[in-house]
Amino acid sequence: MQDYIIELRGITKSFGDKEVLGHIDLSIKPKEFITLLGPSGCGKTTTLRIIGGFEQSTKGDLYFEGERINEVPPFKRQINTVFQRYALFPHINVFENIAFGLKIKKMEEFLIEEKVKEMLKLVNLVGFEKRKINSLSGGQQQRIAIARALVNEPRVLLLDEPLGALDLKLRKEMQIELKKIQQRVGITFIYVTHDQEEALTMSDRVIVMSEGEIQQIGNPEDIYNEPVNRFVADFIGEGNIVDGIMVKDFEVKIEEQLFTCVDKGFEENELIEVLVRPEDIDIVKEEEGMLKGNVRSVVFKGVHYEMEIKDDNGFVWMVHSTDMAKKGERVGLFIEPDAIHIMKKVG
């Protein structure tokens, strides 16, 4: 048990009659950067709030280093949170904000000063002690919020869409910086976001959630390359998802054509769904193509062209390629066996 710092066992949460979390099982290792990813309303924030102690689960157990902490109030947990809109205290200055938790612990004044300085250095805001919260930019407030949480030396840091309010450029910078901070302080980060790119960039493991349930747990490569179902495939990156039949091991029928693939272990003629990423499709001459179709649209995207190609069975494929085809042209499509991802059909 001690291998895990946080464990959720059968956590269920209902608001009134509405169940927002259905039986969540999750184990988190020390020093892990873990991301809860999903669209709004999928239960990721509720899960985080249960770990933080701001919400009580209806059923199930929550363990912290093997100890059940369901009833422990937030102010007694060795867990700190970076809130969605930072939740910095506007009536006190930067120093007082960061020192807030330490003062509650009645730490000696000189120690507090030292620690706050250290934290400001960590988040690159040396000399900001006396500044008012309202005079800071969004990015600076973000860093202060992180400093305020980290200064308490929590075992686990919870981050609830911390970059949501920042513009794109700042977000990318902060993603890298957050990852660096996590590696430097060496504690567990549990991160909530709806931004798949953010999740893939920073995490050791990603937990994809939908409608109160965990869809898939895995490292970023697995999640992207081997989504377990249509929801994950659709949510992570762009993809062509098409119905298919698993004729036998290593052979799948898509759009009335047989393809070789790398998957096995399905029943014979099982109905499945197939994911093909747009960048994995090659455009070839019509006669060389496994599928043939008409180019419906072509948009130049800088690094590649984004094309829609309607095959002769009527399915429209999204293709990203550096080779350009002309609109209306007949072309062939070529897909390598390892670009074909077979997923169980749900629902």
């Binding site: 701001f54 937030p74 700190n80 949170t81 809130f83 910095l88």
Partner: peptide, 12 residues
């Protein structure tokens, strides 16, 4: 979230 932030930082 202000109140929760305070509780989170150890305030009763």
């Amino acid at each position: 979230y202000l109140e929760e932030a305070a509780l989170d930082l150890g305030a009763t």
